[in-house]
Design a protein around this nucleic acid. Structure first.
Ligand code: DGT
Ligand code: MN
Ligand code: MN
Length: 334
DNA sequence: GAGAACGGCCAC
DNA sequence: AAACGTGGCCGTTCTC
């Protein structure tokens, strides 16, 4: 179509979302392709997949895989319920199909606040980050305010989600190039932002360096519970391969510790539901979130119990909190 | 027809 | 060529 070629990939030129967005005004077909892509994704990956896995009782029973990920997270499949749309207003509607086991029950969910940043604060000991969490601060929100020049309390969901990408991106080794693309700013501006981040949180930089050194010396890194990830390419002479290994090494103790914590919580919640003879059920796990089919008469106990049992296994030098929601379905809990 | 590689895109 | 990490599932293309 005589449109400018952009990102080169193995098979030719990329037509991904980022590329097409930049061509949106250069040819009338482009917005149509984008809309088609989005609708096709929704139909084939969610509607068709979920319909295909319905049991004769019209239920879905995903498999939680305990031996797939390199960090200790669970994964889910058949269907995957850990990637159900939430960011787009239209696609998010699909969450309305996740309802309680019985008509008279409700959905209850609890999600850890800023979980991996809290673990990072603990593992790195960064003074500023520890202080912020001790004071009840929200680093995602603070980043969103800085990036989008927003006053107190004027952050949208999209903006906070974008700030998460930036915060986790930087702490897990994002380059100025990567940040520049994510924020649609110049390379030098991105480099400045990263510099300021590490000036504010110098302990995070030190943690990155320590973790890389440990991976090189030991050949593995560990979570707080002692789970190891072996890092094989950490001494590669190929810079691309070596740096990839370094970023994986930095990430694994943190993502893995978050998994350690929620797993301990799940075991204790399961035992407590049993012990108290409760009929509410733990039905979904989405990495740092638990979803329950909740019996109304058990609501008060369940809220208190889940909150307590999720927070207790996180034995960190900063507070760990969960935020909860409830409603007739998963959509309403958000 | 099965399976792998790829690009793409949904979530955390 | 690649420059946050961890996943699963899709359609296309290619091979056997
Ligand atoms: N490396 C990386 N990790 C991510 C990303 N998004 C989410 N995660 C990880 C780190 C988060 O702490 C964890 C849980 O995701 P959430 O969406 O619940 O975010 P978080 O708990 O940080 O903030 P919250 O207070 O719940 O909104 O998953 C990402 O874009 N990159
Ligand atoms: Mn969370
Ligand atoms: Mn979450």
């Amino acid at each position: 179509l005589k449109l400018p070629a952009q990102k080169k990939i193995k098979t030719g030129y990329s037509t991904n979302n980022e590329v097409l967005l930049s061509l949106e005004n250069m040819h009338p077909i482009v917005p149509g392709i984008l809309r088609h892509r989005s609708l096709a994704k929704f139909k084939t990956s969610f509607l068709d997949v979920i319909a295909g896995f319905l049991s004769k009782e019209d239920m879905i029973h995903p498999v939680y895989n305990q031996t797939v990920t390199a960090t200790g997270r669970l994964s889910s499949s058949g269907p995957n319920i850990q990637n159900i749309p939430v960011r787009g207003a239209e696609a998010r509607e699909i969450r309305k199909i996740f309802i309680p086991l019985r008509r008279e029950d409700f959905i209850f969910r609890a999600d850890y606040s800023q979980i991996e940043l809290r673990i990072l604060a603990h593992l790195s000991g960064d003074k500023k980050m520890v202080e912020i969490f001790k004071e009840g601060g929200d680093i995602h929100e603070a980043a969103a305010r800085e990036i989008f020049s927003r006053p107190e309390g004027a952050i949208t969901k999209d903006e906070r989600r974008a700030a998460k990408t930036i915060n986790f991106g930087i702490v897990y080794g994002m380059s100025p190039y990567g940040l520049a693309r994510a924020l649609k700013i110049s390379n030098p501006e991105a480099a400045g932002y990263i510099d300021r981040f590490f000036f504010t949180f110098p302990g995070v930089k030190a943690y990155q360096e320590e973790t890389k050194k440990a991976a090189l010396q030991n050949g593995f890194v560990s979570t707080m519970a002692g789970r190891r990830r072996y890092i094989s390419n950490i001494d590669s002479r190929n810079r691309t391969i070596r740096e990839f290994a370094e970023r994986a090494a930095i990430n694994a103790p943190i993502q893995g510790t978050a998994a350690d914590i929620i797993k301990e919580a799940m075991i204790n919640i399961d035992a407590a539901l049993e012990k108290n003879g409760m009929n509410s059920k733990m039905i979904l796990q989405v990495h740092d979130e638990l979803v329950f089919s909740a019996v109304k008469s058990e609501g008060a106990v369940l809220r208190a119990m889940v909150t307590e049992l999720m927070e207790a296994p996180a034995r960190l030098r900063v507070p760990v909190t969960v935020t909860t929601g409830e409603g007739e379905n998963w959509y309403e809990c958000g």
